[in-house]
Design a protein around this nucleic acid. Structure first.
Lengths: 144, 144
DNA sequence: ACTGAAAATTTCCGCTC
DNA sequence: GAGCGGAAATTTTCAGT
């Protein structure tokens, strides 16, 4: 499926997706054409979802990051769309454990965080939230 | 600093960083050269950190995602490096709230998650952990 | 999976506003 | 300082093998 060469290519592209196929090929001992073909297939199969840029959110005004544990009194397995409709939520996961859902939220200020919490409370089944505001981010990295 | 045109360019590149500068220029009413210059400066200033690929972690065998709340009995503000040395930790944040640090962990199985927890316990100051294993991810998206 | 040539893109330049 | 337009260098793409 995904062999050692594919993993190397993925790792190199994660680090810098602007690398040329010639460079990629050299790194794994293939021609640029062959490297390109490998990467094309990884995209086709969905292993590589997309090429994107990593943005400094703080530079765009999103200085507040918070995680929100959502408690519920009913099953929330169908609440994905309702949560996706709240723009400042970056991630939403159903979790096993004390709470039902975990959200990652990014806003420009704590005032906006409050707005997000108000809207979360309006989602069906939500009975409470516990927020943990990020004071410092040690790292957010891509696993190889 | 970052005007409306920059924001549009960033948004377009977040969606697909393989867009040509000619296309980007058209979208914002600039020549390809001017669009290129804008993006170059955004990179230079660190607003755009890097160009990367988004990978389907499950396709690479990382099927388990978990969040770990780390309790501590001392200040953990200097523990970033110790945590970064544990390879399966994707994110680590210092948080305000019940716990001290929040980790996002991705492993190939719950067995490896256990290994990560064992190593987290070896970090100075850690007095306990509470893990929330992800059952379903509603979404992980890039905010615009 | 490689080669080689055509097509497209990126990158750089002098010039203008 | 920001943008334009074109030319040069590089990369991507697509035959055929």
């Amino acid at each position: 499926m995904v062999d050692e060469i594919d993993r190397t290519l993925i790792s190199l592209l994660q680090d810098d997706a602007t690398r040329s196929y010639a460079t990629l090929g050299q790194a794994v001992g293939l021609s640029s054409g062959a490297a390109h073909e490998r990467v094309r297939k990884l995209r086709e199969r969905g292993v590589i979802r997309r090429t994107t840029i990593e943005v400094d959110q703080a530079a765009l005004g999103r200085t507040v990051t918070a995680y929100v544990l959502v408690d519920s009194d009913t099953w929330m397995g169908d609440s994905g769309a309702a949560l996706a409709a709240i723009p400042d939520i970056e991630e939403a996961h159903v979790i096993a454990g004390q709470a039902s859902v975990l959200l990652k939220v990014r806003t420009s200020a704590t005032r906006e965080l409050q707005d997000v919490l108000r809207r979360v409370f309006e989602v069906d089944g939500v009975s409470g939230t516990r927020s943990a505001v990020v004071l410092e981010t040690f790292f957010e990295r891509t696993l190889t």
